[in-house]
Design a protein around this nucleic acid. Structure first.
Length: 562
RNA sequence: GCCCCCGUAGCUCAGAGGACAGAGCAACUGCCUUCUAAGCAGUGGGUCGCGUGUUCGAAUCACGCCGGGGGUACCA
């Protein structure tokens, strides 16, 4: 990564200045090298301004001392002092051009790094209750979890993707009872529908299917005997739907972890007993409570209800004990909806109570999604329901655009999902711009191949145009974008980078021809184009979006027939 | 009441204390006989919700307000 190289250079310069006696020794501080915000330079460091007070000299004096002591480097054409005390670094054009070779050499690994050092991380998402089809909001959680997993894997972490299946508890029981009622209804019989049951049409559909497959068989048995079976059928149906909807988006898991199994294995009661031994459990009013015991968080939460059934909190504590202790994950990332944020504090309190460092548990909370159809939020639309479901949106606009929109915004921001915009195959839709740039480069490379133009052997020194050097400089940021997205758990950095790179290539393309009569320049530019294509493809791949070799505009197709 | 997220261009949003605040879309003006015009170039558009403070320096940090959303179950 370029910042790493510049930091090493800066460190040498600081040491040289100290040896020369122009800079006093300083406590180790952040070198603070980052992408420069001004055009005149590529990277900059704010170090002189931050150490000025401790050193007892002005920032510009410090910067000057460091710059004067800096050795020459083929990587940098200029190192200078600027503004209130920045050290600015300008990359040498020749060095920049050479990097195209490195990018091509790295190939599909360009952008990857080893900052994760193989650390095992479990990413849990979206763990939606299997009580019905996924909504668009659920889709955001799923895509964010999936892209985060891809990014973390690219950054050198060992990722385990997991879906926690809440296959027991009240909600599930209600679903089973709702299904029974619908099944009876399909056979012309009446069975009480639970007051807070699942009224969705999908349950009715399942009931009809069951009636068709089994006739009156279950009606002839007492309902107590068939309840478990109906619950299981309902879970299987719901999970099947969820699996299909996520499959449409290319989202798969290493493991589907069953909550019921935690109860069956005794893990839940064991966890409660362990907490009790540590003094975090009390009995009151016929229930068993978890008490965090610290002043800030004096809340108490039920672990076992008066009915004797354990709560969701109880099994989630056991689940996290399983993650950290039994399976030994170094870190755990839970991607969930922001409406569960109340759960975060409880789980941190539970981590403390289990004596597991809470730093090892991170929550990524996705804010709500508003679906907009024809400029109107879906809830208020007469077409309400048309686009509430994830699978319907995916069928309408395809997995690529769906994924793009899901990660385009910071997870902290509420998101408007504009179905009409996402459907537009035009310049209003940024995902097409990125994919189109990729296809355009593929087209140029095809053209070169047809003309039997070979890109090997040329010198990259031919890349001297400001637009092409800017293009390479942008590509050089990619590894840092991926690393930053991984470190900060921010998938939205990827689409922003990809859009920037695609735009820069398009600008370049309109000013300079890749294939020309100048063979040396053509060779170099073909390699540049291939590097951009590679980088776009890698970025798209991390987002789980396809990178097409060919895209034909529908208008063009129509007009070419005329 | 308490907790979490948000408030930046007409709209949707980027901007992990730094240099003149950015992008996409929308609006307006140009550009296809030449590698894909799903594209490019240009123009206009801002009290960074408000107020105090911390700092050499604040959209960014702290505190207090004002708006919008979500959460606050012996549901999961």
């Amino acid at each position: 990564m370029v910042t790493g190289k510049i930091e090493a250079f800066l460190k040498d310069a600081i040491e040289a200045a100290q040896e020369a006696g122009t800079l006093p020794s300083i406590e180790s501080v952040e070198l603070g090298v980052e992408k420069s915000r001004v055009e005149e330079s590529d990277y900059s460091s704010t170090l002189p301004m931050r150490i000025a007070r401790a050193v007892g000299a002005s920032p510009r004096e410090i910067a000057t001392a460091i710059v004067n002591a800096a050795p020459a480097s083929p990587m940098l054409s200029k190192v200078g002092v600027a503004g209130p005390g920045f050290i600015n670094f300008v990359l040498a054009d020749s060095w920049v051009a050479e990097q195209v070779g490195d990018i091509l050499g790295a190939g599909s690994k360009f952008g990857h790094s080893e900052i994760g050092e193989g650390q095992r991380i479990q990413v849990e998402y979206p763990s939606i209750n299997p009580t019905g089809p996924l909504t668009v909001g659920h889709g955001r959680i799923a895509v964010v979890g999936d892209v985060l997993s891809r990014v973390l894997a690219a950054a050198g972490y060992d990722i385990h993707r997991e879906y926690y299946v809440n296959d027991c508890g009240n909600q599930i029981r209600l679903l089973g009872e709702s299904l029974y009622s619908r099944y009876a209804e399909a056979l012309g019989e009446e069975a009480p529908f639970p007051p807070t049951g699942y009224k969705g049409e999908y349950v009715r559909d399942w009931g009809v299917e069951l009636a068709a497959a089994h006739g009156r068989r279950y009606l002839d048995l007492p309902q107590e005997e068939t309840a478990l079976e109906f619950t299981q059928i309902a879970i299987d149906n719901a999970l099947g739907q969820i699996r299909d909807a996520l499959g449409q988006l290319g989202i798969e898991f290493d493991e589907w972890f069953s909550e019921a199994q935690l109860h069956a294995s005794g893990d839940v009661s064991e966890s409660i007993e362990r907490l009790r031994e540590r003094g975090y459990v009390i009995e009151r009013a016929g229930a068993t409570w978890f008490t965090a015991g610290d002043e800030e968080n004096d809340q108490e939460n039920v672990l076992i209800k008066r009915t004797g059934d354990p709560t969701y909190l109880a099994s989630d504590i056991a689940y996290h004990n399983n993650k950290f202790v039994d399976r030994g994950f170094g870190s755990v990332i839970n991607v969930m909806g922001a409406d569960h944020h109340g759960h975060v504090q409880r789980m941190y309190a539970a981590m403390d109570a289990m004596a597991i460092d809470r730093e090892r548990l991170t929550f990524v909370l996705c804010q709500m999604v508003h679906v907009i159809v024809e400029g109107v939020p879906v809830k208020q639309s007469k077409r309400s329901g048309d686009f509430e479901l994830l699978s319907q949106v995916v069928e309408e606009i395809g997995p690529d655009a769906t994924r793009y929109f899901m990660i385009f915004r910071s997870t902290d921001s509420q998101m408007d999902f504009d179905v009409d915009l996402a459907m537009k195959k035009s310049d209003e839709n940024p995902v097409h711009k990125i994919r189109y740039a990729h296809a355009r480069i593929a087209s140029i490379l095809r053209k070169a191949k047809e003309s039997a133009i070979d890109m090997d052997g040329g010198s990259l020194d031919e890349l001297r145009q400001p637009e092409e050097l800017a293009l390479i400089r942008t590509m050089l940021q990619f590894p840092e974008v991926v690393a930053s997205a991984a470190r900060r758990l921010e998938p939205h950095q990827l689409p922003h980078f990809a859009l920037d790179l695609a735009g820069r290539f398009n600008s370049y393309y309109h000013v300079h021809r890749v294939i020309s009569s100048d063979k040396a320049v053509t060779k170099a530019r073909l390699r540049l184009a291939l590097a951009v294509k590679r980088t776009l493809a890698n970025a798209l791949n991390l987002m789980g979006i396809s990178a097409p070799e060919l895209m034909v505009r529908e208008d063009d197709e129509a007009s070419s027939l005329n």
